[in-house]
Design a protein around this nucleic acid. Structure first.
Lengths: 239, 239
DNA sequence: AGAATAGTGTCTGTGAGACATTATCTG
DNA sequence: CAGATAATGTCTCACAGACACTATTCT
């Protein structure tokens, strides 16, 4: 499929090489507060500083940029199969002290339960209100991710990815309320969930953990489910 | 601001150079039909084939990727100062016969009046229903652009960029109806325009071109206006 | 029994669309 | 004056939110 004759002249056709990276904004809920994940940087610049999980694009290894982002998530947080969506490209001469660069940013929503291994091996969670001390333009990237997720959360199925595999409707409503930052009418919320129809009750299963009437357990319908799984390896084991 | 010591090691840190391009989906309305712009490719591969206006990123020349897209629009269509928004990144080994590449796609909405010079010098308009014969993954890029624009058009100010500097409300409504592909209730449309408040009537100015009651002329409010202007040069004059 | 939350029935105000009416031009 | 479209007034139905009530658990 590829024409090798083009490859020879590639260097001459490209005025300058471009540093291409991917960065992932991993969002989760911890005790009702909206958080993003950071990883200490292994190399200069900003070695040791907590930064968004990211890395160089490896054309020889990655089928495309989504594969690059998935590799970063696998290597740095030990998770795969999660909901992952492209956010935007951040570019220019000013964002990286090494010079002109491109970062293709992605965002993912993950339930805290899927992050236990990652948290045990160095991944940090920080509340989204705190964007201080981030290297490069990572604060701006998180800002744009939050804007996108909040904008997409108004009655879309997006926030459900922050819930574990099974959940109750009051739990799901609390997730929406945290993301949107305002209370939602219970009757309206349930009507909308019925209308959007991306969750289904699990017949006969209830959450009886409280001193009150048990709540029906729900799950994401099969066709909307991403195959979330944890890698058997720990994090940072990749090269 | 930049640390030169990093530059030396850049080549070693980058596993492989990546071909970085920008492509622009230029959308306009011609006689009530929604169209996108194509330009014959000057170089191999696909030399002579009509393709989206695009080109390599020039890190030495462009401040960032937006500047790259603006340069492409200036050089290939002779326009600048238009509404321009990032669409998505298209990447991978399969999209370009030269091998692994990245294209950062942008979209712009331009009134037909601003394209007269471009159309006289080789830019082609094609209806959005016809995506045949496009090189690379340009058909997919246009598809995604259409999806984005249509999705953003439901009562946002976006479609107004397809109108000339002054326009009537019935004209603006026709633009929305073309983009959305369905008729809109006149009273509701006017109520929404009043509520969104991004256009204002031009006192005392009317469109009296029809054999009926003249229509009030409107314009985009100053704070929403982009400084659209045509370059004095023709197209394709850039290096 | 009382506390707590889950879940549902019902009323009402807001707002979008349907319809009708008036306004103002050309020929 | 007839025809055409602009612009606006008004009615109605749907729906989101408010409120109230019932259900079911634990202590």
């Amino acid at each position: 499929m590829q024409d090798e004759s083009y490859k020879k002249s590639k260097a001459e056709m490209l005025p300058d090489p471009v540093v291409c990276t991917v960065d992932v904004v991993l969002l989760t809920l911890r005790e009702g507060s909206f958080c993003y994940a950071l990883v200490p940087r292994e190399q200069e610049p900003f070695q040791g500083v907590a930064a968004l999980p990211g890395g160089f694009v490896h054309p020889a290894e990655d089928k495309d940029l989504r594969a690059s982002a998935e590799r970063v998530l696998r290597d740095k947080a030990g998770i795969q199969g999660v909901y992952l969506e492209q956010l935007a490209v951040f570019s220019g001469v000013a964002r990286d002290p090494r010079g002109w660069s491109i970062s293709v940013a992605w965002y993912t929503l993950v339930p805290l339960e899927a992050l236990q291994a990652a948290l045990a091996t160095g991944v940090i969670l920080r509340e989204v209100a705190d964007l201080g001390g981030l290297p490069f333009d990572h604060a701006e990237i998180v800002r744009v991710a939050l804007e996108r997720v909040r904008s997409k959360s108004t009655y879309s199925s997006l926030p459900v990815h922050l819930c574990p595999a099974t959940f109750t409707l009051p739990q799901l409503q609390a997730v929406y309320e945290t993301l949107l930052g305002e209370p939602i009418n219970k009757v309206s919320f349930r009507r909308k969930m019925e209308e959007l129809a991306f969750v289904e009750p699990i017949k006969g299963e209830f959450d009886s953990s409280g001193a009150h009437r048990p709540a029906q357990l729900y799950r994401l319908k099969a066709k909307y489910r991403s195959r979330l799984s944890l890698t058997d390896r720990g994090m940072n084991s990749g090269g």
